[in-house]
Amino acid sequence: MNKRKVTFTVNGERHELVVEPNELLLNVLREKLGLTGTKYACGKGQCGACTVLVNGESFLSCLTLAVAVDGAEIRTIEGVAEPDGTLDPIQEAFLDSSAIQCGFCTPGMVLMGRELLNRNPRATEEEIREQIKGNLCRCTGYFSIVRAIKSCCEK
């Protein structure tokens, strides 16, 4: 395998890494950068727990080769709040709507909410449901999560 140097920014910080072509972004984030907020739960693109934003767009990091995001700007759950710790409105909404149970789906859900609000701050409930339809939550039945995202949408 031809090891490659890749450069990307993660949560605003530039990283230069040498990776094997078969390394997945998920594992590079978790193991090489210690960003364990991104979760494995199926490894097959089905659950959305491994969601990260790549150039602002939601990606499944369990199906993404690290070499393929060379040059990209990546945002993980750890980079959603301001560097000083101020929470993003979507995070506040998850707290206020009790949209967190076990919390394992939460990183993916928060990022999906963030992506949606960036694209469409006036999203309807239908659009919210469509946005998170690929993110499984076994605990909440989704209701509180939909409410949380809804509370951030302009009417």
Partner: peptide, 23 residues
């Protein structure tokens, strides 16, 4: 009373450490 749960902040910021995160 409805309150924000204590574990909430760690969970919305990706800081919660589950067993798969223990290193």
């Amino acid at each position: 009373k409805v309150t924000r749960r204590k574990e909430g902040i760690a969970r919305v910021t990706g800081k919660e450490v589950f067993s798969s995160d223990v290193t």
